[in-house]
């Protein structure tokens, strides 16, 4: 490997962004946004994760094979959560 993939400065910039997003997450939790609490919280958490994955976990320069692994995992995660919740949500519906 030739030299660092990320500089020291970028690590601190990312940390600053992560902290800002954390503050936003807390603020959003107390804001009167009704049904949007969960989507907003998930979106902010997703954004933070993307930062960590791209910069701290070096996936900004990642190989496509590693992306395939990540993508497949996230897809199956969606299947797990989505299909189980689809049962729970529709359980009360009467035919």
């Amino acid at each position: 490997m030739s030299g660092p993939r990320e500089g020291f400065v970028s690590a601190f910039v990312v940390l600053a962004l992560l902290l800002v997003l954390t503050v936003l997450t807390v603020v959003a939790a107390y804001a009167p946004i009704g049904v949007f609490h969960v989507p907003v919280a998930l979106a902010l958490a997703g954004l933070k994760s993307i930062l960590v994955v791209l910069y701290y976990m070096h996936m900004r320069h990642g190989r496509s094979s590693d992306w395939v692994v990540i993508g497949t995992g996230l897809l199956l995660l969606a299947v797990l959560i989505g299909m189980i919740l689809s049962d729970v949500v529709t359980r009360g519906w009467s035919g």
Binding site: V26, A29, P32, H37, A41, A45, K48, S49
Partner: peptide, 15 residues
């Protein structure tokens, strides 16, 4: 990063 909002911050604004 996911545990924090999903456990600690849920339902804070009421409703």
């Amino acid at each position: 990063i996911f545990v924090f909002p999903l456990l600690y911050l849920m339902g804070r604004a009421g409703g």
